[in-house]
Amino acid sequence: MLLNVRHTTVYGFDAPMRFVTQSHRLNPVDTAGQKIRSWSVAAEGAAFGAAFTDGAGDRITTMTVQGPVERIEIVVEGEVETFDTTGVLRGHRELISPVCYLQPTSATVPTGALLELVRATVDAARGTELARAHRFSAAVTEAIAYAPGTTHAHTTAAEAVELGQGVCQDHAHALIAMAQATGLPARYASGYLLSGEEAAEDDASHAWAEIRIEGLGWVGFDPANACCPDERYIRLGSGRDAREAAPIRGVSRGGGAEALDVRVEVAQRQQ
């Protein structure tokens, strides 16, 4: 499948910022599931530099804007050829030990309602690691109903399960926490998704979980869509939670309040 992505992020500041510094995980890398045909990240007035590939295999770049600045627009555009690998991450070079992904972060600490969900699911999850991972993913889909606006950026996995509502970030965190609680390394993946016609526009910026399965390696699970990532998905990068895997992490200093407008369009190009 050929996917075209256009992802714009616009920051508007009440009062001019003195400077803005961002770390970008906005450049997808080639894997068995995706070949990057073309890709660009641009922002007027910004300096880019300090680029490298991190231990997770993600391409990281740094963007700085010297103020005073009132508005920044980051435009990501590209074309990616994708292939269905049934969720398995192959052809991806990374160096971090999977054991690191057994350690929860503040977003994925297994407590309260989440632990109960693990206990309720784990009996039915005898058998292979893969079967257990699928069972957990289905349990998360069931436990957290898709409801935008009910959770926020800092909602933890346990809180989302308790609430019973959330968005893809909450689904991913909950699945990571469940997998880790039973000794499976798990992490957060961020990227883009070609969604159905009925889907809201901001759905295209997506997140899911990856679970390390003995013999297979990292396998993606998307509880929000009750499936494993296929050729509709473009993977940008990973981390132990949403914060670590964020496509953009930034700090703005010296100005007023910030208004953020994100638009993501993913379209299939007819070949």
């Binding site: 490298f52 590939t53 991190d54 231990g55 997770a56 160096l95 971090i96 030990s97 054991v99 690191c100 057994l102 350690q103 132990r240």
Partner: peptide
């Protein structure tokens, strides 16, 4: 790897 002081962010650097 599960040590609080281990920084996965600098693996390979």
């Amino acid at each position: 790897y599960r040590n609080e002081a281990y920084e996965a962010a600098v693996v390979g650097i």
